[in-house]
């Protein structure tokens, strides 16, 4: 199954949730925002959303330096 992650195609296993994808990116525990098809997804919904082919996902990190 293929989704679009940060503008680039990426293959995922069938049945993966948003939480699985975030964990696979080794981003668990870091301060990130996840947007799915242009809507911000609350953190507590990562585990309940099952990815679908063609989903557009943006993972944004908070950057605090200056």
């Amino acid at each position: 199954m293929t989704v679009v992650l940060n503008g680039e195609e990426r293959s995922c296993r069938e049945g993966w949730t948003l939480a699985d994808l975030v964990a696979d990116l080794r981003l668990t525990g870091r301060r990130i925002a996840v947007e799915l098809n242009r809507n911000i997804i609350p953190r507590d919904e990562y585990t309940s959303y099952r990815l679908r082919p063609g989903d557009e996902i943006e993972v944004v990190h908070f950057v605090g330096g200056g």
Partner: peptide, 21 residues
């Protein structure tokens, strides 16, 4: 806050001091 409702802890966000720039 729309993107990051809670203030990230300093431990989660690398600073320029820690990571360079």
């Amino acid at each position: 806050r729309c993107l990051f409702p809670d203030i990230p802890s300093a431990d989660d966000v690398p600073t320029c001091q820690e990571a360079g720039i």
